[in-house]
Design a protein around this nucleic acid. Structure first.
Length: 647
RNA sequence: GCUGGCGUGGCGCAGCCUGGUAGCGCAAGCGAUUUGUAAUCGCUAGGUCGUGGGUUCGAAUCCCACCGCCAGCUCCA
């Protein structure tokens, strides 16, 4: 009789072949045996340790969503005879299933599918696992070409299944699936279908495009409601919407897709970002360079861009019989700066910095507000150093990068080391050395990271930084790439201490990525309510009546003299209306100026978040605001502390 | 690039299905009000209905192409 070890350490003997579910609490939707998830019906045949898996824990949610995906596919097959179903995995926060259907679905079709799903759930159909051999599986899915293809292409050694294929059946509907699943459809709890999309079979754009239905599923209605609220919150933060509301930028159709103009308020925000970047780079040993936007084709031939990156480059323009390409990257230009004279080992490391504007002909479907544009400006740098200096330089990049992110209010990162991709230039030994240098620097920095195989740039491996925003989303920002290839291609050299010529190594790095993309991330992170130092308009002055306009203008001038961005709202509207306008523009501080304030030399200050504080001495406010902005503080002014205690 | 949806004054929307030459709110300008912490009242002006072609006596409305946007796929900062 097999012995089963339960979580408390209790050991139970059970009859061989009895279902593991008998040992689990009713609420467990499946079981964890060792490091494997199994159905409640899984037969115990040897000594094992078993833990229950609840719908509320990550593994359990995964199973729940997988089962919900099955039921959705079952519902679709019920409603659309002739449907062919492909794959339907759980994903973060939900699931999807891909179909080939006799009709094109529209969002109006989703409620009917959802209603059918609820009927199936209410019917409490048990999920029954069967195992078939290859021939049996092909027979079972005779009219399902996608399932047959999965069976036909499955390698004999795939998973632990060998030549066995598991099928889960509930009622008459069956799907090829490794499992596990919930024991019965009545375990499906809170779910909702969300959207439709096209998706290529097996992710290959040369294969048929299927109809994908996305849905979400949770252990409880409360969790589902919380998730839907999160979606709404994300929509509220949408930088495209806020960009219009706050009058930061626009994408005029006349410019072409992915090209934008920055409005004055966006320009002020961008200037605040760029001023900080210049300041911290110059203070950290970087030197500024400036380079043009187009260059002759020979440059791109040498760099390898025409061979490896052409599809992302704008077509060339002709002048004087030569082809000029708009630059998709800044690196070749920085190489030319380096090569403008013979370099000594004493010149290294050389850290060239540029807010460099690049043009990439991104495929039309990927453009997305500021997050993916065709013309953008990178905070780009190329560090040219000796091989010996490489690790130290990468560590210095990690340091400046963290200081910059913290200043902008990002504290939590996910880091990836991306290795050699399929399309690559340079020799294997270069790739190995470059990858090892990055790995060594990461290990020494103490930053946690994971490895993304094959995700590197065509000229070198890279470390990517993803920042977590205020509502937990991750955004890719910085990238640090280690490159032996371009120095080779451009025949870069330096004279060593030994009086011999040597080849330097190059680090490519951007910290914010592009200013456009980073601005989008900032907008979404702060929901448009920027900290004082970034706010396009930091202080708005509201005269109570016309007779106060002159005094308010004087105060605005005093604030500007301290470097603050202050505007006066002299419109002949009521105070509440002007307050509302200032709040909608998410201006950090609004000062109402009337008789009392002019008389006492104070201000009635309303912070963007929080109530008004009257009787703040104007000079104290100006001092605190100027200081907060200059320090690039992320927290607001403690207004109450500025008010003198009543005598 | 692919699949589907969408495009109406600066912004947000109605009208389109069931063709008969456009309407609402906000914003703007003007007037009255001189206002004390999220919308005072009234008046006025503003639209070749994304662009081009087609069907029709007649097109915002139906059809086609292109441009742009949106959701995904593929790609990626």
């Amino acid at each position: 009789m097999p012995k089963v070890t339960l979580p408390g350490g209790e050991i139970r003997e059970v009859a061989s072949g009895s279902p593991v579910g008998e040992l689990l609490p009713e609420g467990a939707i499946c079981a964890r045996v060792g490091d494997r998830l199994v159905d409640r019906s899984w037969p115990v045949e040897e000594d094992v340790s078993v833990e229950p898996v609840l719908a509320s824990e990550p593994d359990g949610l995964h199973v729940l969503r997988h089962s919900t995906a099955h039921v959705m596919a079952q519902a679709v097959c019920d409603l659309y005879p002739g449907a062919r179903y492909a794959i339907g995995p759980p994903i973060e926060d939900g699931f999807y299933y891909d179909f080939e259907l006799p009709k094109q679905l529209t969002p109006e079709d989703l409620p009917a599918i959802e209603a059918r799903m609820r009927e199936i759930a209410a019917a409490a159909q048990p999920f029954v696992r069967e195992e078939l051999d290859r021939a049996g599986a092909l027979g079972r899915f005779a009219d399902q070409p996608y399932k047959r293809e999965i069976v036909e292409t499955a390698e004999a050694d795939e998973g632990a299944m060998g030549e066995r294929f598991s099928v889960y059946r509930n009622d008459g509907w069956a799907d090829l699936c490794l499992g596990p699943h919930v024991p019965s459809t009545d375990r499906l709890a809170a779910f909702k279908l969300l959207s439709l999309a096209g998706a290529y079979w097996r992710g290959d754009e040369h294969r048929p495009q299927l109809q994908r239905i996305y849905g979400t599923a949770w252990a409880t209605e409360e969790d589902l409601a919380a998730y839907l609220h999160r979606l709404e919150e994300a929509e509220r933060r949408d930088h495209r919407k806020l960009g219009r509301q706050l009058d930061l930028f626009s994408f005029p159709e006349e410019l072409g897709a992915g090209l934008l103009v920055w409005h004055p308020r966006g320009g002020l925000l961008r200037t605040a970002i760029e001023d900080f970047e210049r300041e911290i780079h110059l203070a950290s040993g970087y030197v500024p360079v400036f380079t043009p936007h187009p260059a002759r084709s020979v440059l791109w031939e040498t760099s390898g861009h025409l061979a490896k990156y052409r599809e992302n480059m704008y077509p060339p323009m002709q002048a004087e019989e030569a082809d000029y390409y708009a630059k998709p990257m800044n690196c070749p230009f920085h190489v030319l700066v380096y090569k403008s004279q013979t370099r000594s080992y004493r010149d290294l490391p050389m850290r060239l910095f540029e807010l460099g504007t690049i043009y990439r002909h991104e495929r039309a479907g990927v453009l997305h507000g500021l997050l993916r544009v065709r013309g953008g400006t990178q905070d780009d740098s190329h560090i040219i150093c000796t091989e010996d200096q490489l690790v130290e330089e990468v560590l210095r990049v990690f340091d400046i990068l963290q200081r910059i992110y913290l200043t902008f209010g990002f504290e939590d990162f996910v880091i990836n080391l991306s290795t050699k991709p399929g399309e690559a230039i340079g020799e294997e030994s270069m790739w190995r050395k470059a990858t090892e240098a990055l790995r060594l620097a990461l290990d020494r920095s103490g930053l946690g990271y994971s490895v993304a195989e094959g995700e590197g740039a065509f000229y070198g491996p890279k470390v990517d930084f993803h920042a977590r925003d205020a509502i937990g989303r991750l955004w890719q920002l910085g990238t640090v790439q280690c490159d032996y290839a371009l120095p080779e291609r451009f025949q870069m050299e330096y004279m060593g201490e030994d009086n011999e010529r040597h080849r330097p190594v190059m680090i490519h790095r951007a910290i914010l990525g592009t200013i456009e993309r980073f601005t989008a991330v900032l907008i979404e992170h702060y929901a448009g309510a920027f900290p004082l130092w970034l706010a396009p308009e930091q202080v708005r002055l509201i005269p109570v009546a016309d007779r106060h306009a002159e005094a308010a203008g004087g105060l605005a001038a005093m604030l500007r003299a301290r470097g603050l961005r202050a505007e006066i709202d002299a419109s002949r509207e009521t105070v509440p209306k002007k307050i509302r306008a200032a709040q909608l523009m998410k201006i950090p501080y609004t000062l109402v100026v009337g008789d009392r304030e002019i008389e006492a030399g104070t201000a009635a200050v309303r912070a963007r978040e929080g109530a008004e504080v009257r009787g703040v001495p104007f000079d104290a406010f100006a001092e605190a605001a100027a200081s907060g902005a200059a320090r690039r503080a992320l927290t607001g002014i403690d207004l109450a502390s500025l008010v003198p205690a009543a005598p």
